[in-house]
């Protein structure tokens, strides 16, 4: 837990979880795998009160699936990706893309979804 917001090497990105199931186990696993390919330390922060202050907001080590699950990041939840290290920009690019691509889930073929017969 050596990161502080005053550290100049810390980079941040704002993203919004877009897949329907939220940041669940499989999605969190993809995040971890992406992070482990890089050297930077990465945290996911769930901002509170419109994110005016990130200190004290719930944060998860992006190498721990269980911590990420504990964030309870549902569809529509804004998250701050925070990385510190020489390849911080690259890992943030990849993570941002992962989140925006909905972790490659949510049927893209509308025909395959169950229609609502209720």
């Amino acid at each position: 837990m050596s990161l502080t917001s005053g550290n100049s090497a810390v980079k941040r990105r704002w993203v919004t979880i877009r897949n329907r199931a939220g940041l669940h186990t499989r999605a969190a696993t993809l995040v971890r795998e992406t992070v482990l390919k890089h050297r930077s330390r990465v945290f996911l922060i769930k901002p509170e009160n419109n994110g005016e202050c990130l200190d004290g907001a719930p944060r998860a080590d992006a190498t721990s699936v269980i911590e990420m699950l504990s964030l309870c990041a549902l569809e529509g939840t804004p998250l701050v990706l925070e990385a510190e290290g020489e390849d911080a920009d690259r890992v943030l690019d990849e993570l941002q893309n992962l989140v925006n691509c909905k972790f490659w889930e949510d049927d893209f073929a509308p025909e395959s979804e169950e229609a609502n017969h209720a």
């Binding site: 186990t25 969190a28 696993t29 080590d61 190498t63 721990s64 699936v65 269980i66 911590e67």
Partner: peptide
């Protein structure tokens, strides 16, 4: 995944 979680 959870069983192998390094944090745990």
């Amino acid at each position: 995944e959870i069983l192998r979680d390094q944090k745990i």
